[in-house]
């Protein structure tokens, strides 16, 4: 299913049908809300977030909708903080992935105010309010803000994403040498946290399900450019990314580069691989 739906608002203040489970539960929720309200009156400001909701299994959530939550605003608050607040104080069924809270685990790429962003790395104060939070576009929604990542992982794993070389030194405790320049060359490409923001932003990937996508190509770049793998392996790697659904699909729209939370120059890397592929083809001509 797609996330491109028209917005139908459901305030959490109105009891929706599926939540009328039992009296006791209502009390518990009322309690929760009391606590939240007390916090709200203390806070100087509050911010509204409109969050996409969908659950294939639960009556009332089978049709996607948006819920609006009003959360107290504090300095330094991120999108993820607001979601956690809403979940822990208003609706414990609100579902999203998150873990590290510091832009390293790559769990919480979301579609916020119409752009792919990491929830934990996006300051509330940098956005226009109310803030609209949706799951990543062009991916199957599992529930609320959680999308199915399998396709992304498959693409990542299709480019032989592991180091391969025939040049391991034989000496005991001897490392392979690598120049500082070469390490610097691959540095940005090694920063990827598999968040899938780039893939979600890419028009080509949206139209061609088999397109490797920016992150997987970047992964290939990371190894192809690593001098420790050797020339032969580089040829092999270039063959992989030259396939039908590889680098030549990219139309340099830069959307991936714009959204990458790790500032990886994805489009540049893809372009460079294209040039390398041309060079190596000429060599064998």
């Amino acid at each position: 299913m797609s996330t491109q739906i028209t917005e139908t608002e459901t305030e959490t203040e109105t009891e929706s049908t599926h939540q009328k489970r039992r009296l006791a539960e209502k009390h518990a929720r009322a309690d929760m809300r009391e606590r939240a309200k007390a916090d709200l009156s203390e806070a100087e400001e509050s911010v509204k977030i409109k969050v996409f909701r969908y659950d294939p299994e639960v009556e009332g959530k089978k049709d996607p909708r948006f819920d609006t939550f009003r959360v107290p605003f504090t300095k330094g608050m991120t999108i993820l903080d607001a979601l956690i607040y809403a979940r822990d104080h208003f609706d414990s069924s609100l579902t999203f992935r998150h873990s590290c809270r510091q832009a390293i685990c790559g769990s919480d790429a979301l579609f916020v105010n119409g752009r792919q962003r990491l929830g934990c790395k996006t300051q509330m104060s940098d956005l226009e309010w109310p803030v609209r939070i949706e799951p990543l576009p062009h991916a199957e929604v599992v529930k609320d803000l959680v999308v199915d990542m399998e396709h992304f992982y498959d693409q990542m794993e299709s480019v032989e994403p592991f180091f391969q070389t025939n040049e391991i030194p034989s000496g005991e405790l001897e490392e392979q040498r690598q120049t500082r320049e070469n390490r610097e060359k691959v540095k940005m490409s090694t920063r990827c946290i598999w968040c899938a923001a780039c893939m979600s932003s890419c028009n080509i990937a949206a139209g061609d399900n088999e397109y490797l996508g920016p992150a997987a190509i970047n992964k290939a770049y990371r190894f192809a450019m690593d001098e420790r793998e050797g020339e032969e392996m580089k040829e092999h790697r270039l063959n992989i990314i030259e396939q039908e659904h590889g680098v030549w699909r990219c139309q340099t729209q830069f959307s991936c580069t714009v959204v990458c939370p790790k500032d990886i120059p994805l489009t540049e890397h893809i372009q460079e691989l294209k040039r390398e592929a041309v060079k190596s083809n000429l060599k064998f001509w």
Binding site: R21, E25, R29, P56, E57, S92, S93, T95, V142
Partner: peptide, 12 residues
Amino acid sequence: AVSDPSRTFNTD
């Protein structure tokens, strides 16, 4: 008790 009744991705 868990108030989310869903079996799907029940983080609650």
